[in-house]
Amino acid sequence: MATMHVDRTGSGRFPRFSLVALAGRTLGAIPPPAQVLVGIVSVQIGAAVAKQLFGAVGSTGTVALRLFFAAAVLLLIWRPSLRMSRRAWAVAAGYGVVLGVMNLCFYLALARIPLGVAVTIEFLGPLAVALAGSRRWLDGLWALLAGGGVVLLTESRGELHLAGILFALAAAVCWGLYILLGAALGRQSSEGGGLAIGMVVAAMVAMPVGVVESGMSLLDPAILVLGLLVALLSSVIPYSLELEALRRIPPRVFGILMSLEPAVAALVGLVVLSESLQWTQWLAVICVVSASVGATRSARPSSP
């Protein structure tokens, strides 16, 4: 499956070098498949924690907190240089806008439909990128299988809100754009500088919306601690693990492992949020996961 990965950078000062070197040694001791799986679980637990914040600060307020703290942590770690070309700035800004909108749409969906359903629909974005431009009948079969999964979700929606499904589809479109812009960002910036700047732009997109909805409640100390936890679980930890894994395993293997994300989301929703799915919805999750695995396994290797 096509995926996004960007390199990272910093100032090279001794404290930062020691921190990054220690983090690198720690991550390097974890087998790559375990890194990807831990990252997936971390993202979904972060989403579950975030959903529990909705009652206090709303879905957009939660997004604002997550992106603000994620940007702060990434800036602290990578200390990006502002000396980038105009094209690099344009790509980083576009990446950040898409990232901000994607998170807003996903959390607005999450406020209305179960976690497993939201992630399954959103996962159509990277699947579409993986299948884009293919003329092989087998890839058409994977697309039909994924489409069948979405039909099952909508046909069995029961208590599902149409608005939640539409927000999840919008997040899927943004995820596809996020992958394409992330690849461009990796070419235009070195190490983590572009990622950190893009995260700042994403926070700037989400903060005004979150402040309008939540106001001063965003400054509650307990809410701030939970917001930091969501940022670490949903952004900082998984991004770091995925980047390290991509250095050590082929992108195709990485894509197959990432295909498990909808199923993990459904399980986390069941265990953490007590969100049980109907058997048709579980079948829909299996369809999308199977389509993703199949598309990734049958993908032709990229040209060097």
Rank of each mutant, 00 (worst) to 15 (best):
V236W: 11
S85H: 08
G182I: 01
L232H: 07
A29T: 14
A222H: 13
L75T: 03
S259T: 00
R83G: 13
P33H: 06
Q52Y: 14
R86D: 09
G10Y: 10
E191P: 15
S59V: 02
A71R: 06
V230T: 05
L115P: 11
S303T: 08
G28L: 10
A183L: 12
A266K: 11
G186R: 05
I256P: 11
R297E: 03
S290K: 01
R297C: 03
G294D: 02
L169F: 14
V6H: 13
Y107A: 05
L267Y: 05
P32A: 02
S134A: 09
R247G: 14
L65C: 06
L144I: 10
G96F: 05
L273M: 14
L124F: 02
G24R: 11
A34F: 11
A70H: 05
A146W: 00
L180A: 11
L104M: 07
G215Y: 12
L75K: 04
A118C: 07
L243F: 13
L229W: 08
G39K: 06
L246K: 09
E275T: 11
L185I: 07
G227N: 04
V268M: 12
C174L: 12
E244P: 01
M204E: 06
L74D: 12
I249Y: 01
M1T: 03
S189Q: 05
A48Y: 08
L257R: 12
L277Q: 12
V253F: 00
G148E: 07
S214I: 06
A203T: 07
P31S: 09
Q278L: 13
I40P: 09
I121R: 00
E122T: 04
L177E: 01
F17V: 03
L37Y: 12
E213Y: 02
S214D: 11
F106E: 01
